[in-house]
């Protein structure tokens, strides 16, 4: 979307967190947060403020700055502090028109509650998983919400609002090393710092592999269990159709498509 005059006065706050690569576990820019920044840059490059609550020295924040940001505002607080009070207080004062977040963080609890808690605290409506802000007119935003498998739902919501940005949103622009290393990290001690007491009692460990649920067969006899266990494997495996008329083969393919429910 082109930034037009209408959006010139629009003020957007994009909240960013330190992401975590699923493979290496290394800190990076979070994919959804980066999409939120991208959406903000596309909508209102002038009125965008990128906000982080936490450690101002986190290297991963530079990756957001590399998208072409002059500065990132950081509400400095300790590792165990709850980000919501600090952010809600700051946003309550700065009063942006749109607050963009990711759907779920890539590190920490990743509960996905941030947008909702902020919405509740700031008294702003929350829209979930948006893919695009189509337009803004008369103080109302027209949004597209991402649904599974590439489907979209159109929503209309009045400003100001909080929105979580889905992975279906426009991919973030590349982060360039030069601007990233030169951007200003404007750190300020958060006005409120609330220690997350609940979290302190949790124990955290690398994710264990979850066992795949087996097809449980409630059979009363050994013969039934035997049948259930063997029936599947004999039916599986590639079926090869050859030397048959094309219509017959096509029918078999089509039946499978119907069975899988992909023909709508």
């Amino acid at each position: 979307m082109q930034p037009d005059k209408q959006n010139a006065n629009l003020r957007i706050a994009a909240l960013v967190s330190v992401g975590k690569h699923p493979g290496s576990g290394r800190a990076r820019r979070a994919e959804q947060d980066a999409r939120a920044v991208e959406m903000g840059l596309a909508m209102a490059p002038q009125g965008l403020e990128v906000l982080h609550a936490g450690d101002p020295h986190a290297e991963a924040l530079r990756a957001y700055a590399g998208m072409g940001l002059k500065k990132i505002r950081i509400l400095q607080q300790g590792e165990n502090a709850d980000a919501v009070p600090a952010l809600s207080q700051y946003l309550g004062e700065s009063k942006p028109d749109i607050v963009l977040t990711g759907v779920r963080a890539e590190s920490g609890e990743s509960s996905g509650m941030m947008a909702y808690l902020l919405g509740e605290k700031l008294g702003m409506p929350v829209v979930t998983r948006i893919a695009e802000i189509v337009s803004i007119d008369n103080g109302q935003a027209n949004l597209l919400q991402a649904l599974p498998r590439g489907q979209r739902r159109a929503l209309r919501v009045p400003l100001p609002f909080v929105a979580s940005v889905d992975m279906a949103a426009a991919a973030p622009r590349q982060s360039a090393f030069g601007p990233a290393s030169r951007a200003e990290m404007e750190a300020k001690k958060a006005d409120v710092e609330v220690r997350d007491e609940v979290q302190a009692s949790w124990s955290e460990a690398p994710a264990r592999k979850r066992p795949k649920r087996l097809k449980v067969v409630k059979a009363k006899t050994a013969a039934d269990r035997f049948k259930a266990a063997t029936a599947k494997s004999s039916g599986d495996g590639g079926k090869v159709l050859r030397d048959k008329p094309a219509s017959e083969m096509a029918q078999a393919v089509f039946d499978l498509l119907l069975e899988e429910g992909v023909i709508r």
């Binding site: 493979g23 360039a176 601007p179």
Partner: peptide
Amino acid sequence: TLEKGNTPNKGAEVLDNLIATDNPNGFN
């Protein structure tokens, strides 16, 4: 690449992977 962030096509993805996983395809 370093100033404009304009590596075309899959370039940006490959570089991101190299940064995050030390290999161009993002494998663990």
